[in-house]
């Protein structure tokens, strides 16, 4: 068989064909809202974020300090053992300079791009990163391996969300790194 010898299906339309009613169509909007339970580990994670602290969870078998925290170790397949506070500093593992929004619409001209990054948090096991944003930095100056520090919302504005950290900014003086929260639980 050769594909060229068959009449292939699928009728291509333009968006304007649909809008002009050349073919019939119907619009539907699902009317659903979700309340996702945080569970124990993420519940605590968010509660600590509200207090301006980043908490991880440690597995005493493989020794990993995991962030976001989880109540079971997916490698050892056993419960994790203890809560461990991390610093609010870290290292950029990778990043992007993003000119589109979540719905693929373009960020308007003149507005700053989004600066998503994977940040390896100090105090968690090497390679253990979280998704967050960068700020107070020229996009072209961002480098993989750059040292960064969390910029928190004011305590009264925090609500127990990952967005209680507004973004991570470059550490001006890397030698002074590690001045993150040292308060204990």
């Amino acid at each position: 068989m050769e594909l060229e010898k068959f009449k292939l299906g699928a009728t291509n339309l333009k968006q304007k064909d649909i809008e002009a009613g050349k073919v019939l169509s119907i619009r539907q909007t699902p009317d659903l809202e979700y309340a996702w339970d945080n569970g124990v580990a993420i519940g605590r994670y968010l509660k600590e974020l509200k207090e301006g602290r980043i908490i991880a969870r440690k597995c005493n078998k493989c020794g990993r300090v995991m962030i976001p925290p989880r109540m079971f170790c997916e490698l050892c397949f056993r419960p994790t053992d203890e809560w461990v506070y991390c610093k609010d500093t870290g290292t950029v593992n990778t990043f992007s300079i993003c000119h589109i929004n979540w719905d693929a619409s373009r960020i308007p001209e003149g507005m700053p791009p989004h600066l998503p990054a994977v940040i390896e948090i100090d105090g968690a096991s090497p390679g253990t990163g979280i998704l967050h944003l960068l700020g107070e930095v020229e996009p072209e100056k961002i480098k993989i391996g750059m040292r960064v520090k969390a910029v928190w919302k004011k305590p009264e504005e925090r609500e127990g969300s990952i967005t209680d950290i507004m973004y991570f900014k470059p550490l001006r003086n890397p030698s002074k790194s590690g001045t993150g929260s040292k308060r204990r639980s």
């Binding site: 339309l13 019939l24 619009r27 909007t29 809202e33 979700y34 996702w36 339970d37 979540w102």
Partner: peptide, 16 residues
């Protein structure tokens, strides 16, 4: 016990 609220922010346009 805490939860986080959200929705799937899309709508659909079906051709017949």
């Amino acid at each position: 016990l805490s939860y986080f609220e959200g929705r799937i922010p899309v709508n659909y346009l079906y051709t017949y």
